[in-house]
């Protein structure tokens, strides 16, 4: 899976995702972990690759990483940011 053309930036202590072409007419405020997952998803990744990247970065158990990743993906998908 992969995110659409999304800009991720840090602003005023938050991480923010917006779409450059306006397909999503709002913005998502994220924490650092979600922003990391979003950055990873700028390129095509499988769920396994994402779990591996998050575990490596944050030194957490696979199950916790997987749960976090699925939550973040669900949020992105709900506003149409995941490329189908």
């Amino acid at each position: 899976m992969k995110l659409k053309d999304v800009i991720i930036t840090e602003a005023n202590g938050d991480y923010i995702a917006v779409t450059a072409d306006g397909t999503f007419n709002g913005m998502i405020r994220m924490n650092r972990t979600a922003a990391f997952i979003a950055e990873e998803l700028k390129e095509e990744k499988t769920l396994e690759q994402l779990i591996s990247a998050v575990c490596k970065k944050y030194d957490v158990a696979e199950e916790i990483a997987k749960q976090n990743i699925l939550n973040v993906i669900k949020q992105f998908d709900s506003v149409g940011l995941i490329e189908k």
Partner: peptide, 14 residues
């Protein structure tokens, strides 16, 4: 406020 922030982010990137 959100739109202003979004606009600035988009302007900066573009």
């Amino acid at each position: 406020a959100d739109m202003a922030l979004r606009k600035e982010i988009l302007f900066d990137a573009e």
